[in-house]
Nucleic acid binder design. Structure first.
Length: 423
RNA sequence: GGAAGGGUGGCCGAGUGGACGAAGGCGCGGCGCUGGAAACGCCGUGUACGGGUUUCCCCGUACCGAGGGUUCGAAUCCCUCCCCUUCCGCCA
């Protein structure tokens, strides 16, 4: 959520910044300004009426104590009451409307973010690793995985439909090994390991920004009014919602291995084959809750902590800075890490690292007491460290050999207890 | 799932429907006492919003788990929900 005060004081700046994302947001802003003005006028009226009411109520108490007649004052207060009630009803409507609009306005992009409308305008920041050179035609991971008996698409679909896959044998073990490798790596960097709930209430999703706007992307358990998490960012970031942290508690680094559930509404036909786009996938997530002064430094280290996973696994990747039009709803600035997929002859997203500044903190009401005793909103960051399904795909493809076997990356051998995956 | 009890400031804890933003204690900050400290004494110590003024100063409003209701007036009475504790049931 944006700071209403900023919108009020510098509407043109906010509009300009939002327009870098999407031209259609200016009207929403005007609506906010109008509702806010309306709200404050009503508030002023109500508060002065209430002040009067409070005064007169006290008078009644005094009169009665002295045994005097208070009925005329009572009548006055009764009238004030009905007046207050009708104004309050109006105020309630205005506030509800304002809240609704505010919750649908995305974060302001940081001024450093390159302006652009779509993916192609993202900025390549750096590349790492040598692209593999094959003396044969490299196969896509689904062919390799099926042949090795580690990916079973047919049975996955039988159980749950398309975009559900069964990991078997070395596939299942690969996931477990990767989970351990990643968590161990992050633990060394000071991230605290967490196992959060995978089902959360709607206000938790409002906190991180998935709701109300992206409801159709989520799985919902209607009976219990709970949603399956689309990423561990949701429960991790919300861990301190409503709390006032001590300044010395910051920064907080968290990591969690969880499944992620996404309906993938609107991506029909995209990445139909393989495990690149699944309704359920596993991910190790990194979340930071930090002091506002250091959040951009923290974004750099967060990104490099995620990159570290790919370095250790020897998977070639590049880092791109998302342009304003490609930025997620809550993010002020985002680096995507893209891993090389030989069968597609291109890099594919495997991690997304964002600084949300105080956008989520406002929605969650997570603050800290600074050295002057003032309560301020924290900054929140999140990044995949990294998506496990896509890592499996990348390993299968980058480490494949002509005979259909796959070499296990060195760093993974102790975890997997195998050097090669062969049929 | 059933029954009972409970949720009050940073913490503990009192609170009869009217002077309660809330006793008392602890903690914390300041001052005093002291050579210095402890102990002691005095004073202060929540948040949000709106307004005035931009001096972190004043005024107002709201907040005692959340939301409704009763009342001239609610921390206090009523209803719904959430959470915690205990007992029973079920269960990995």
């Amino acid at each position: 959520m944006l700071d209403i005060e900023l919108i009020r004081k510098k509407p043109e700046l906010v509009k300009e910044r939002l327009s870098r994302r999407d031209g259609g947001l200016s009207e929403l802003l005007d609506k906010v300004l109008e509702l806010d003005k309306n709200r404050r006028e009503l508030l002023k009226k109500i508060e002065s009426l209430r002040a009067e009411r409070n005064k007169k109520s006290k008078e009644i108490g005094l009169l009665r104590k002295e045994g005097k007649d208070s009925s005329s004052v009572e009548e006055e207060v009764r009238q004030l009451k009905t007046e207050i009630e009708s104004l309050q009803e109006k105020l309630g409507e205005v506030e509800e409307e304002l809240r609704k609009v505010m919750l649908r306005i995305p974060n302001l992009p940081h001024e450093s973010v390159p302006v652009g409308e779509e993916e192609s305008q993202n900025l390549e920041v750096r590349k790492w690793g040598e692209l593999p050179n094959f003396s044969f035609e490299p196969k896509p991971h689904w062919e390799i995985g099926e042949a090795l008996g580690v990916l079973d698409f047919e049975r996955g679909a039988r159980l749950s439909g398309s975009r559900f896959t069964v990991l078997k044998n070395w596939g299942a073990r690969l996931e477990r090994a990767l989970m351990n490798l990643m968590l161990d790596l992050h633990a060394k960097k000071g991230y605290e390991e967490v196992i959060p709930p995978h089902l959360v209430r709607d206000e938790i999703l409002i906190g991180t920004g998935q709701l109300p706007k992206f409801e159709e992307d989520l799985y919902r358990c209607e009976r219990d009014e709970l949603y399956l998490i689309p990423t561990a960012e949701v429960p991790l970031t919300n861990l301190f919602r409503g709390e006032i942290l001590k300044e010395e508690d910051l920064p907080v680094y968290l990591t969690a291995y969880t499944p992620c559930y996404r309906r993938e509404a609107g991506s029909h036909g995209k990445d139909i084959r393989g495990i690149i786009r699944q309704h359920q996938f596993s991910k190790v997530e990194l979340v930071k809750i930090v002091h506002p002064d250091s959040s951009y430094d923290e974004l750099e280290t967060l990104t490099s902590d995620a990159e570290e996973v790919l370095k250790v696994l020897g998977l070639p990747y590049r880092v791109v800075e998302l342009c304003t039009g490609d930025l997620g709803f809550s993010a002020a600035k985002t680096y995507d890490i893209e891993v090389w997929l030989p069968s597609q002859n291109r890099y594919r997203e495997i991690s997304s690292c964002s600084n949300c500044e105080d956008f989520q903190a406002r929605r969650m009401n997570t603050r800290f007491k600074d050295s002057t005793g003032k309560n301020r909103f924290v900054h929140t960051l999140n990044g995949s460290g990294v998506a496990i399904g896509r890592t499996i795909a990348a390993i299968l493809e980058n480490y494949q050999r002509e005979d259909g076997s796959v070499v296990v990356p060195e760093a993974l051998r102790d975890y997997l207890k195998a050097d090669v995956i062969a049929p």
